[in-house]
Write a protein that binds this DNA or RNA. Structure first.
Length: 270
DNA sequence: CTTACCGCCTGTCGGC
DNA sequence: TGCCGACAGGCGGTAA
């Protein structure tokens, strides 16, 4: 369920809730597995973990610890919650038991999420072919616009391709394309350089504004304390099929783009 | 090489 | 009421 803004909001939330000292006394796993098996190296099964920082790469949370890193991906339906006393419910898969007595619990009904240990960040197979983060200098390089224009696929598929750039999922793809005035189905090769450069900037500001708004809560997404995001109230096209375009009043369209619902205004976007 | 489509899962919702 | 299909913030594998 989360795209970059939701994961970043969660990251900040969790980091601010880190107990002091930030020591995990035990990590518990519950069957069944997520996308990948839940397991730690035997030598670390009973270890305590000092959490040095909580980072993010793409849509992954990264718990940096004295033993290596623990990565968490929320898939489509995952969330973390912070509890003073452990109260397990259906679909809980991972529990971080803190020395402070708190519990951080990962719950994921659809089990598309991931929770894995790696000795270091360069060993994470999921990170090996990722494109640039939207808030870096690299994202502003000519190479990114060139890569966005180098494919004949629909531009929406291109900006959702993590090898081109990370963080843009199904909601923000439609939102950014509306804000940039580009039809989601337009071939990347047919978007002029200047227009593509504008789209890149719009993606950045859209994601940034979504973070400021606490992310989008369409159905499942909540912060670690259970609060919802507010950015869904700022959606201009996503989920607005049949309603009026906020700019011109034309009825918002919806159609599948490679299996994902896509929303746009046929007048404002060309 | 490219690109569209299919699984992976559970839960919810709308139509009949 | 219940059943059944469609759909849901992701992403890798695969077939053409």
């Amino acid at each position: 369920m989360p795209e970059l803004p939701e994961v970043e909001v969660l990251r900040r939330d969790l980091e601010s809730r880190l107990p002091k000292p930030a020591r995990i006394s035990r990590i518990h796993f519950f069957a069944p597995k997520l996308r990948t098996p839940l397991q730690l190296p035997t030598a670390l099964e009973k270890a305590s973990w000092d959490v040095l920082a909580i980072g993010r790469r793409s849509k992954f949370l990264i718990f940096e610890t004295n033993h290596g890193i623990l990565i968490s991906h929320l898939g489509m339906s995952g969330y973390w919650r912070v509890e003073a006393a452990l109260n397990l419910i259906k679909h809980d898969h991972v529990v971080l038991q803190w020395k402070s007595g708190e519990f951080w619990v990962y719950n994921d009904p659809r089990r598309f999420g991931v929770f894995e240990f790696y000795p270091s960040i360069d060993k994470v197979k999921w990170f090996s072919r990722l494109g640039p983060e939207p808030f870096t200098d690299e994202f502003m390089s000519d190479a990114v616009v060139r890569s966005m224009r180098s494919s004949g696929r629909a531009i929406k598929s291109i900006i959702m391709d993590a090898q081109v750039m990370v963080g843009v999922g199904n909601i923000y793809a439609s939102e950014a394309l509306f804000r940039a005035g580009i039809n989601p189905f337009k071939s990347g090769r047919k978007v002029p350089y200047k227009k593509m450069d504008e789209l890149r900037r719009v993606i950045r500001t859209t994601l940034l504004n979504a973070i400021k708004g606490g992310g989008s809560s369409i159905r499942d997404y909540v912060h670690a304390g259970g609060e919802k995001g507010r950015f869904q109230d700022k959606h201009l096209v996503y989920g607005r099929e049949g309603k009026s375009c906020v700019k011109c009043g034309t009825i918002i369209q919806s159609r599948k783009c490679q299996g994902r619902s896509t929303f746009w205004c046929r007048v404002c976007q060309s």
